[in-house]
């Protein structure tokens, strides 16, 4: 029977917390870039210009069907040679996950926008609103509310996917765990602690979104689940 000993792991908890902070940086930036980009791609896909709409469809399908790890390798190992720039693990990670999640966010935006009753477009049009104004003032505020559960689900997927950046030597929580495990020869304790950390991080995040959903549901119409 194995003797559990967390002393070594917890003694170096700072090392893991640094990794957690680095994970959150990539996660946060990927959301900051990915959500607006996702909206843009969704609008492109719904546009009446066939070339633009097909291009956006292709981008969405491509990034949804290729594994994130392949994308990450491509951005880290291949892209720098193609455009001959230095690529840091951090930049490659943010780039990969912003674009990758934008493809998923685009589909969420499109679904949300399509879920709004056509009468809303008509009513806005009838009081003289242009399409962009209607989208901003009438459609998106309603659609975003309905999209929150899907957004949250996708963001949690993203958070879990960020563990991949450890494979390009970015010092995220997973990478720090690998380092610590080989340093302390205590993989069981290290990886268990890290699993628990991810578990609570994701739990907190999902609880926050549930809270947000309730808050928003109180004003006017609720979300559709």
């Amino acid at each position: 029977m194995h003797n559990w000993d967390f002393a070594a792991t917890l003694g170096d908890i700072d090392f893991l917390l640094l990794g957690l902070w680095n994970t959150l940086q990539v996660f946060g930036l990927a959301l900051v870039f990915g959500i607006p980009l996702g909206l843009a791609i969704a609008l492109g896909r719904m546009s009446r210009i066939p070339v633009l709409s097909q291009l956006c469809s292709f981008v969405i399908e491509f990034f949804r069907t290729t594994p994130p790890l392949v994308q990450l390798f491509w951005f880290f190992f291949a892209l720098p040679i193609l455009i001959s720039v230095q690529m840091t693990p951090f930049v490659a990670s943010v780039l990969t996950f912003s674009i990758q999640s934008s493809a998923f966010f685009a589909e969420i935006f499109r679904g949300g926008i399509n879920s709004i009753d056509k009468g809303q477009w008509e009513a806005a049009k009838a009081i003289g609103m242009t399409r962009p104004v209607c989208l901003r003032r009438i459609i998106l505020p309603q659609a975003v509310k309905r999209m929150i559960p899907a957004f949250a689900e996708r963001s949690i997927e993203l958070l879990k996917t960020t563990t991949l950046i450890s494979t390009v030597s970015y010092a995220d929580l997973m990478f720090q765990a690998n380092e610590l495990a080989s340093k302390t020869f205590r993989p069981l304790e290290v990886y268990t602690v890290v699993a628990v950390m991810y578990f609570f991080l994701i739990l907190v995040f999902s609880q926050l979104t549930i809270l947000l959903e309730h808050r928003l549901a109180r004003s006017g119409e609720g979300t559709l689940r």
């Binding site: 009753d117 009513a123 049009k125 003289g128 399409r131 505020p141 119409e221």
Partner: peptide
């Protein structure tokens, strides 16, 4: 032109069968 039509629609009001009120306001 889209602009002209938007302007026109402010001069001609419309009420719909299904009300189409904005539920978030």
């Amino acid at each position: 032109r889209e602009n002209e039509l938007c302007k026109l629609r402010t001069r001609v009001g419309m009420v719909f069968q299904h009300f189409n009120l904005f539920p978030h306001m």
